[in-house]
């Protein structure tokens, strides 16, 4: 049984609930295989200076991403101020416009506080968001799992709010599921289709399943696949976990109880 409908964010429609990164793979061929196994149709990319030294290397990451299969989501990774975010977002849009790839109309906003924690900087994030929304971007906002901050980000016009499960690349999973639950309640109140995505912190497939069971619309991850011992196998596991978590969340779990409840009938025991 497959679960329901596609995920719509801004002008784009995703047919998978998993968004996968393109960083940290040991080869572009491996990245390509992992993307296929993950069954995603949306991958994130970063904007960086062209390395002018190896002018004949000729390998661009886009040569390993099929424009017919994947929508690109450019990020503003590595930015620490609103000005930097806006500049990188505009460059990402420029790179994608006329490139043959979908993705020029949206951006993953990432405004970091410092290099050690890589935690999002909330004030710079909000400031950049307002500018980008005014410029017509559909903005997916990476942020901390602070309920009030997530509300402010939605109010400021974000196309999706993407609270971190735990710090980027930390593999700790969703550390505060209750915060995610409250964020979902608040942001989806009278607006059930509003996209909330857990971005960052996933370590393994069960983290994805757990996040999806909470009722988030999707999960964005990179290191958990790229850094696994067998990235291709992990990519396949992530696809299954996304589906399993979404199905289980929709099915509705039983309540947790302290004591046992027998599964076989008490009546009719021969020793009764």
């Amino acid at each position: 049984m497959m679960t329901d409908q596609e995920l719509k964010i801004g002008p784009y429609t995703l047919n998978s609930r998993l968004i996968v990164g393109t960083g940290k793979y040991s080869s572009l061929e491996l990245m390509q295989q992992c993307h296929a196994e993950s069954r995603t149709n949306c991958v994130t990319v970063a904007v960086r200076r062209e390395r002018l030294v190896d002018k004949n290397s000729g390998r661009n990451i886009l040569d390993f991403i099929d424009p017919g299969k994947y929508i690109l989501l450019p990020n503003t990774a590595g930015c620490f101020t609103a000005d930097e975010v806006v500049r990188v977002a505009r460059l990402g849009r420029e790179l994608l416009e006329g490139s043959g790839y979908q993705g020029s109309q949206w951006v993953k906003l990432e405004c970091l506080g410092d290099t050690k924690t890589l935690l999002p900087e909330p004030l710079g994030t909000l400031e950049a968001l307002k500018i980008l929304v005014a410029e017509g971007f559909h903005v997916l906002v990476y942020c901390s799992d602070d309920v009030m901050l997530c509300k402010r980000i939605k109010e400021a016009g974000a196309a999706a709010v993407m609270p971190a499960g735990s710090p980027i690349g930390s593999g700790q999973g969703v550390l505060n599921p209750n915060a995610i639950r409250i964020i979902l309640e608040e942001l989806k109140h009278n607006d059930p289709a509003y996209p909330v995505i857990v971005d960052a912190g996933v370590g393994t497939a069960s983290d994805v399943a757990a996040a999806m069971e909470l009722g988030v619309d999707g999960v964005l991850l990179n290191t958990a696949i790229a850094g696994a011992k067998d990235p291709v196998k992990m990519a396949a596991a992530m696809a299954l976990a996304t589906e399993a978590g979404r199905l289980a969340g929709a099915a509705g779990r039983i309540p947790r109880k302290l004591y046992a409840t027998a599964s076989s009938p008490w009546e009719g025991r021969i020793n009764g």
Partner: peptide, 10 residues
């Protein structure tokens, strides 16, 4: 001048 391109990222 800045010349930028797309690279791997998360």
């Amino acid at each position: 001048l800045e010349i930028v391109t797309l690279v791997g990222g998360g």
